[in-house]
Each structure stands twice: as structure tokens, then as C-alpha cells.
Amino acid sequence: MKSKAAIMKTSGKIELGRRRAVWELPAELANLHHKVSIGSSCFLKLAPRPSKHWDARRAAELAVGAGFTLDKPCFFRSQIAFLSVTKIESLPDSVGPKMQTLMVGLNPSPYSSASRVPYGRPGNRFWPAAHRAGLISKDRDIHHALVHHGIGFTDLVRRTTRRAGEIDPPEFRSGFERVKSLIEWLKPKVVCFVGLSGWRIVSNPKAKAGIQPASIGLTTVYVMPHPSGLNAHASLKDLIGH
């Protein structure tokens, strides 16, 4: 998704969110991520309208969610956040204030990062299952899914790897804190963790697929099997049922 918001350069800074709502920043940051090269450093000035949901922590979490690493801690003054960040190979969050469901993956693959589509690799059954289950009506279109069906996307860990096994449990747990903060802020009705292994690492080692006994704030937690074609334990019919 490409945000229509203008990217303003002010005194060497890239200014985003000027006089806009805080919830519009993820799309603006995603747009910036798509425009700059991997390894590029940016100095950001984030200046949305003042809000009780806006502080240094939120600014840092939104930058990380958009696929940037922080070069130094966020400097926050007079409701304006200043961040020095570097773009990594990632897939920015697609989230908004009226989400019905937030899909949480483990971490993006290089293929998904390049295509800008979560679960985008040929053979991954997420989109066919979601379409047949009636969750979405347009294949592999995250903007359409968010705007028309209230379905958002993020991951526990933002950096890409070829295999999720390349990420250690502490990194998943650290990423879960960011995801939990995102959920408590935007309050989707349901959060769906895609893949049992992620939820087992961050919450319940004995968890089974389905609705979980623990919620996150007012948000119901659901866990589904991973839709990768390599997961022989779950058929397409099983995934549609979830």
C-alpha cells in the first residue's frame, strides 16, 4: 500500500504525520520503507496531532513495525519524536484503527519482503484459505484486506530470514512486547497468531490451535496452524476451517 501522505523534508529531516492522527503513521512509515534502499539511514521527525496514545515508546515501536532499526533511542519533545533509523529487509505493518482481525506471523521471508505480500510465496496456502473462508475478497492485496475487511498484518520479528528457526526465542519474546502494545492500542476484536510455534514460545508452550484461554486486553487470541506448504500436518481444508 502506498500512502497518499506527502513526505516532507525539513532541514535534512524527513517529516511524517504532520497534523495527522497517530494511527495514520504506520502507512506513512511503510510508504517510506518502500521508497528507500536497504541499509539507508534516515532522520525522522514524526509530528502527528497530540494524543494520549503518542509518546516516545509508540514512536519507536511504529518505526520498528515499519521495518527500520533504531540507530539511537528516540528523542521526544513537545509531542514530536525525532528518530535516527536504518532500513532493514522487512515487511512493514499493515494496521489501522478499525481492525477486526490482526494476523501475526513469525517473521517475513525474503520473498514476502520483496513482493510486499505476507505469506506471499507460491505454495503458501494462507491467501487461498482466507479467500475460501470468506475473510478476504481480493487475493494478495493487504490494502484491500485492511480497508474492506478489517484485516491487518504484522509479525513477531521484523527482520527477514529464510527459516523461522534462525531466530532465537528471546527475539520472539522481545517482538511480542511490541505486538502486544500494538494490540492494546488499536484493539482489534481478534488477534490470530499464524503458526503454533510463535504462540508457544511467547505465551503457552502447550497451546493447541483455536481460541486461547488468555486474551490480550479486550482482544481474543486465536492460534492457527502455519499455512506453509511445508506443513504437512494441516491440509487446505483444515486451514479454511480455522
Rank of each mutant, 00 (worst) to 15 (best):
R140N: 10
R140C: 14
D141A: 08
D141L: 08
D141F: 03
D141V: 06
H143W: 11
H143T: 09
H143F: 10
H144W: 10
H144R: 10
A145W: 09
L146Q: 06
L146M: 12
L146G: 04
L146Y: 01
L146A: 05
H148Y: 15
H148F: 14
H148E: 15
H148D: 15
H149Q: 14
H149F: 09
H149S: 11
H149C: 12
H149W: 07
G150K: 02
G150D: 09
I151Y: 06
I151V: 12
I151L: 11
I151K: 02
I151N: 02
G152S: 05
G152K: 02
F153A: 05
F153S: 03
F153K: 03
F153L: 07
T154E: 07
T154S: 08
T154W: 04
T154F: 04
D155T: 09
D155V: 10
L156S: 06
L156I: 14
V157A: 14
V157K: 07
V157E: 10
V157G: 06
R159E: 14
T160F: 02
T160C: 15
T160D: 09
T160H: 01
T160A: 10
R162L: 14
R162I: 13
R162Q: 07
R162G: 13
R163S: 13
R163K: 11
R163I: 08
E166F: 07
E166W: 03
I167H: 01
I167R: 02
D168S: 03
D168A: 10
P169N: 01
P169G: 00
P169C: 03
P170A: 02
P170T: 00
P170S: 03
E171G: 00
E171T: 00
E171V: 01
E171S: 01
E171Q: 02
F172D: 03
F172C: 05
R173L: 09
S174M: 06
S174P: 00
G175S: 08
G175T: 06
F176N: 12
F176M: 13
F176D: 02
F176I: 05
E177M: 13
E177A: 13
E177N: 06
R178P: 07
R178V: 09
R178L: 10
R178I: 05
V179A: 13
V179L: 15
V179W: 13
V179K: 11
K180W: 04
K180C: 11
S181P: 03
S181T: 04
L182C: 12
L182Q: 09
L182W: 09
E184V: 00
E184F: 01
W185V: 03
L186W: 03
